[in-house]
């Protein structure tokens, strides 16, 4: 696997998840399961398209505060290696058509680990100049909400 890295534009989240690789894979690739964790509660996620093949469409919607579902992610899968790797981008949409507002490619890798699954999300961004645009778009699950979620999680575990 060729993985380019740029510390100013990339981020890597690595986590050991205490569940077998097949369970993590199905949580990611089964739309009904994916909808349950992709966005922070109480927002709701709806998967419109999840065509798990290179060039396959990946489209989700989000509903905040019980409102209508609005576009969230619109992208395309680049690589699907069963139980091992999912690569998608929003630089392209289904069928490799160039997207309107590209900014990232994400590579999800799963490996066996004695405790379960070694889960790595490597996310590469185009540049930081798009930042303002994201703010204007009302980039939803941002800092505040996620921090709150993290706090709740920590409290539950404490």
């Amino acid at each position: 696997m060729i993985r380019s890295s740029n510390p100013d534009l990339d981020l890597t989240i690595a986590r050991v998840i205490k569940a077998p690789r097949s369970v993590v894979w199905s949580a990611w690739t089964n739309p009904a399961s994916f909808e349950q964790w992709w966005v922070p509660a109480p927002a709701k996620c709806k998967v419109l398209k999840m065509a798990l093949r290179p060039g396959g469409s990946f489209v989700t919607q989000i509903s905040e505060n019980g409102g209508d579902f609005t576009p969230h992610l619109s992208g395309c899968f680049l690589a699907i290696d069963d139980l091992e790797r999912i690569v998608f981008t929003n630089a392209l949409v289904g069928g490799w058509r160039p997207a309107e507002q590209p900014f990232m490619t994400a590579m999800i890798t799963l490996q066996d680990h004695p405790m379960g699954t070694d889960y790595i999300a490597h996310v590469m961004h185009k540049n930081n100049a798009d930042r303002k645009m994201h703010e204007e778009m009302g980039f939803y699950d941002g800092w505040g909400t996620v921090t709150e979620q993290l706090a709740k999680l920590a409290e539950q575990r404490a």
Binding site: I13, I17, W37, Y119, Q149, L150, L153
Partner: peptide, 10 residues
């Protein structure tokens, strides 16, 4: 956040 929620979910 996503990874936390995935972990909790599985």
């Amino acid at each position: 956040g996503r990874t936390d929620r995935l972990e909790r979910f599985v």
